[in-house]
């Protein structure tokens, strides 16, 4: 598979100023901007990093460049929501997509494990839903509260979940606002600290699971965001990352986007 992607990257290097992908160097793998003459043999596909954040930073730093990016399904979904919020310029980006493997789709509970037009790989069946969501759903209200209370009491307030999230890009973050989050407390105030981000992920979270993977306290954060995605789908019929033409409902009035329930 990687040979086909390397070929597509080499081709794009003819028409773009660079291609964002992963590179292996010094025993580690990190995002890299491949440019003409770079050794494509160093290119890798795993482990995932939020590459659209890299594209966004480069688009902002260099307002005229055209980029390519090697993207998975979740990268493409992140791109869709970032483009809608002016974090990426779609006219200056070409996506070189590839499908994830069936194992990866299962491990990520991924419902959309491929970009729309992959140049490599065969899109596998979607992964199963996260079983923790069903388990959580079966709990009575009081126990749901204590479930999160227990989970969030482990939080070391590293802000990693926010830092790594491709959809968290605000210049001033409410999670650092003393009016909402009293400083100096560990664990951070319950439930504001985590619910701020959960609310802000409404119509934004594209289920890439980066937040959960980087959480040093092993908090099952995507249970919360999966529930948020479900509510937004049920109430407003919106699936973040699915359609670049669909207007995000939180920027519309209730007349333009009436509640479905």
């Amino acid at each position: 598979m990687i040979a086909a992607i390397r070929e597509a990257v080499a081709e794009r290097l003819g028409s773009c100023d660079g291609v964002v992908a992963l590179r292996r160097r010094n025993g580690g793998v990190a995002p890299h901007l491949f440019q003409k003459g770079d050794e494509l043999a160093e290119m890798e596909l795993s482990p995932r990093y939020p590459l659209m954040t890299v594209v966004s930073r480069l688009h902002k730093a260099f307002p005229a460049i055209r980029l390519g990016v090697v993207a998975r399904g979740c990268d493409e979904r992140a791109y869709v929501e970032m483009a809608k919020r002016n974090q990426i310029d779609p006219t200056r980006l070409e996506i070189i997509g590839f499908a994830c493997t069936a194992e990866e789709a299962q491990a990520c509970y991924c419902r959309e494990p491929s970009p729309k037009h992959p140049v490599a790989g065969t899109p596998p069946a979607p992964g199963p839903p996260n079983p923790l969501v069903a388990k959580y759903d079966s709990l009575p209200l009081e126990e749901r509260r204590s479930f999160w209370k227990k989970q969030f009491s482990k939080c070391i307030k590293c802000y990693g979940c926010r830092n790594i999230c491709p959809e968290c890009f605000c210049e001033a973050c409410a999670m650092e606002d003393m009016a909402w989050v009293e400083p100096g407390l560990l664990a951070p105030p319950f439930p504001t600290f985590h619910l701020i981000r959960a609310m802000h992920m409404a119509s934004r979270c594209v289920a890439c699971r980066e937040c959960e993977h980087t959480c040093p306290a092993y908090i099952p954060l995507t249970v919360l965001y999966d529930l948020m995605r479900r509510d937004i789908a049920d109430l407003l019929g919106y699936i973040p990352g699915a359609d670049i033409e669909a207007q995000q409902p939180l920027s519309l009035s209730l007349e333009q986007a009436p509640l479905k329930k």
Partner: peptide
């Protein structure tokens, strides 16, 4: 393993 504390970040 891809995790950092607030000081690392």
């Amino acid at each position: 393993g891809g995790r950092l504390c607030i000081k690392g970040w």
